[in-house]
Design a protein around this nucleic acid. Structure first.
Lengths: 141, 141
DNA sequence: GTGGTTGCAAACCCTTTGCACGGCA
DNA sequence: TGCCGTGCAAAGGGTTTGCAACCAC
């Protein structure tokens, strides 16, 4: 995603455009594999060593609150970030700690239909997220 | 669960029985709602102020490794624990940070069938966990 | 101009670790 | 008795916070 589009994304959400914010968003997109805050920081520091750790954390939190990115958590303990905003599922491998987004409309419909017929007492559903745990084959990526 | 059964649970897993271990397991069971380590510690300290924080963390980790309990993670950042070992799903409410276990064999079969017919390229599935996000109705619990 | 942002460093919180003592088998 | 488990306190790692200087609007 070119910088211009990133700036517009920020503007569209009514947020000020600063070099740091552009850099953070760009970093998450280029890193792709649900990077940690640390990975984002390292990525940015390579070109722009002056950025502060605290700033990146503040920006990440701000973007999550404004719906530009999402938090993802595995069974390990560091927070990770995802640029994909639409509802989707995750493939996860314990061994490699790798996360991959998984989209499946057919599955979503199946689940929709299922829970249309079967209500859960005392609970109203807003979103359903699958964590599909398993192993990636080594040749992949 | 009476203390005697808890002791047997430990023995069955080839673990030594100590008062601290019994207390931790009992605490998680009585607290029910997927307690944090801190909640477990507070619960135990009410009766037995001498237990050490580090000890509880060591015991929790040990029990996870031995399959007596499970770690549960939300988008917030503290670890929580679950006594339910069998594969199951979670109902989760962001507002209250409440987690409830959800069992649904019919759903499990539906998913099994679905993924029997539809393989995911480059990935072999071991387990599927749903995080059903929504709201608990206020009357419930 | 001015109020939101940044950089910096210290503080924070949860969790882990090291080690000497103590207790289960 | 021997060794694992515990208590304690300090360290660790990731994240948050306070505040003065700064800059986008």
């Amino acid at each position: 995603m070119p910088p211009v589009e990133i700036r517009n994304t920020l503007k569209d959400h009514g947020l000020r455009v600063t070099p740091q914010r552009v850099a953070v968003l760009q970093a998450i997109m280029e890193l792709r594999d649900h990077p940690t805050a640390e990975q984002v920081i390292d990525f940015i520091k390579a070109k722009n060593p002056n950025i502060a750790v605290g700033t990146v954390y503040k920006i990440l939190e701000m973007m999550v609150e404004n719906g530009l990115i999402r938090k993802v958590k595995t069974d390990r303990d560091v927070m990770r970030y995802d640029t994909v905003i639409e509802s989707h599922h995750h493939l996860y491998c314990h061994d490699s700690d790798r996360i991959e987004d998984y989209f499946d409309e057919e599955l979503d419909h199946l689940l929709d239909d299922y829970f249309k017929g079967k209500k859960i007492p005392g609970f109203s559903i807003q979103d359903i997220k699958l964590q599909i745990v398993g192993k990636f084959s080594k040749t992949n990526k």
